[in-house]
Amino acid sequence: MRTLPPLTLAAALMLGSALPAWAGSYATLDPQHSRIGFTYTQMGVAMNGSFGQLKGQVQFDPAKPEAAKASLTVPLASIQAGSAEANDEVKGKAWFNTAAYPAAQFDTTQVKALGGNRYQVSGKLTLKGRSHEVSAPFTLTPQGKAATFEGGFILKRTDFAIGEGSWADGGIVAHDVRITFSLRVLAAEAR
């Protein structure tokens, strides 16, 4: 039997120590590297957009996912809906009415582990003065001393009176809007 050359062993040890798997919890949302996006269809054409701003808190311990909590606020005027004309339009009364309802608010009610790095979050989404329970599967990807939470769900815009009056017809702007999120949350510092 041949022994491993000492250099190989040293290299393996160094590689192993260069990527420490963070075993603790994640606690600080990094809005600069997080994104709330959306996709929908308009006259059969796939469109996408995003919100430029995001605030909130996330508490997530992989050892106790059911105790996880998130409270997210999305200032709706930060929307990028695809064109300047659309950005102005969706701030108006028929859509978000940002003058009266400036932000979307999400608060978790439950987080369940689905096995592996997959989880399911449920919570209360408040938009334009209306609240509904929404639920989204997500994956957790640790990267050094942070993790990315990625997932999405279908929001029915009519549930929140988004796009009223002449815009209510789902044949032009579809009723189903897929909301996607990618949240980078920094690890809680070891105390």
Partner: peptide
């Protein structure tokens, strides 16, 4: 001005 019919006409 932007309206549902404008989106239709463009399509």
């Amino acid at each position: 001005p932007l309206s549902p019919s404008k989106l239709q006409l463009y399509a």
